[in-house]
Structures are given as C-alpha cells and as structure tokens.
Amino acid sequence: MSDTTIRLDTITAADIAATRARLPAAFGAPLRSRALRWTVGLLALSYLLYLHWLFDFDRVFTNLPRVWVIVRLMVDWSQFAEWDHAELLRSMAETVAMAYLGTTLAALVAVPLGFLGARNVIPSRVFRFLTRRIFDGCRGLDQLIWALVFVRAVGLGPIAGVLAIFVADLGVLAKMFAEAIETTERKQLDGVQATGASRIAALRYAVLPQVLPVMISQTLYQIESNSREATILGLVGAGGIGLRLSERIQINAWDQVAYIIVLIMITVALIDSLSKALRIRLIRGA
C-alpha cells in the first residue's frame, strides 16, 4: 500500500517517477504536441513581424508630428460660439431617431420571422432552410453596404439610414429570436396544447412569454449598438451626425470634429445607461 497522506512534503522523487510512469499525461502534453504548439506560436509571431514590415508601420512614428497638429487643432474651441449648434444637435437627434426607428421596425417584423425560423415551430426542414437563408442574406451584408445601396435608391438623408438599419437588423434579430424560441421549454408548450388550444394559441401563450424578455432585451441592445453605428451610416450620406462629421473632416474643421465626437460619446453613454437600466428591470421583472 502506497502512502496516502495528502501533504506535498511527503512526495518523493520516487513518487513522481512512479506516477509519471503510470499517468504520463498528467504531467503536461507530450513532447511532440508541445513542440508543435511552439512552432505554430513562432510562425504566428513571425507573420506578425512580417506584416509590420509589409505595412510600413514606422510611418506611424515618422508622421506623429502631423497627428500632433490635428490634436492641437482639436482642442482649440475658441470659436465655440460660432458653430451651428442647432444643426449639429438636430443631426445628433436624427441619428438616434434613425437607430430607434430602424431597430424597432426590424424587431416587429423579426418576431413572426423568428417563429418561422425556429425548429420547434416549423418542423419542415426545407422551409426552415429558406427562412434561415433569408436571415443570412440580410445579415451577410454590413449595414454600411445596405446604406450605400439605399442612398442610391431613395436619395441622401435619414430614410436611407433607417432602411439600412431595418434590413441588416431584421436578419440579426430574426436569427436571435429564432434561436431563443428554439431553447424554450417543451413542457410548457405541452401543458397548453394539452388543453386543446390551437397551434397558434399555444405558441402565443406558452412560447411567447418565455422569449419575450429575451426579445425585448436584445432589441434594446440593438438600439444601443445601432445608435453608435448609425454615425458611420452618415459618412456615406445616410443622414444624421455622421454626415456633419464627414463634412467637417473634409474642410479640416478639427475643432468641430472633436466637438461632434464628444457629442456622440455623451449620447451613446446616455443611451447605454438607459438601455442597461431598462434591460436589468426587464430581466428581473419578467
């Protein structure tokens, strides 16, 4: 019988050798896989260094003085009183409105689509495959690309932005809703269906209550993240504060660029904390 005291100071070299002979894997990966890991690591590192050289990274440092000029221009707010505050604030509000409108519309349409894409609602694999591919189609293109498309189709301005957010988010939300619906409990559905309720009624009364808090909290999160991303949509002409930002960059009005960035950060922080508070309340209450 071997020593069974569990004290580190009772472990001898002989114990280690014996354990090692019996259970070599307990002492780390075998030499070959360790060597492989090192090789892969070194290759990844050398590729990184190569890219550094390829992209001429030193430019960052040689051009640093120019960055300093811009930074100095950015912090000089002596012209503050002459900026077009009304226009900037209206554009900021426009960006938030775009995010809110686009996401809410997308969420409303995504609810029925989510049900159609859920395995436990639609057993037909072919039908589900089609709906899922539609979601992927919406998601596959970035909002920015959709914005470029809609700016061409409906012209410059916030409507193009709303449509871009709507289409891109429809794919995201419908997919997330469908997945949430698939993870609901079967038992509750059985309970309602056993009462003789129709399929639709059972979904409404047994499945929707389970996923509704998830849906609302995901939608809130999307609104929050879209009010950040809607800024970028403006850069390609889809309205809002981004449009103003790109104008100011083009005319080298760096002081106003800095001001717009501060505006965006404050707005996003406000929406962040508002939506977080709402989500916490929803998750607790539901």
Partner: peptide, 22 residues
Amino acid sequence: TQAERALAVRALDRLGLAEVAL
C-alpha cells in the same frame, strides 16, 4: 510542479478516480 501533479494524482487515487484525471 511535478510534485504537485503527483500529489494531485495521489489524491485522486485515494478517491478512486485516477483513471478519469484527464
């Protein structure tokens, strides 16, 4: 350390679990 690993195997051994250590 090797001693710590050996001790862990001994502890598992004592509870009859050394074979599922990994």
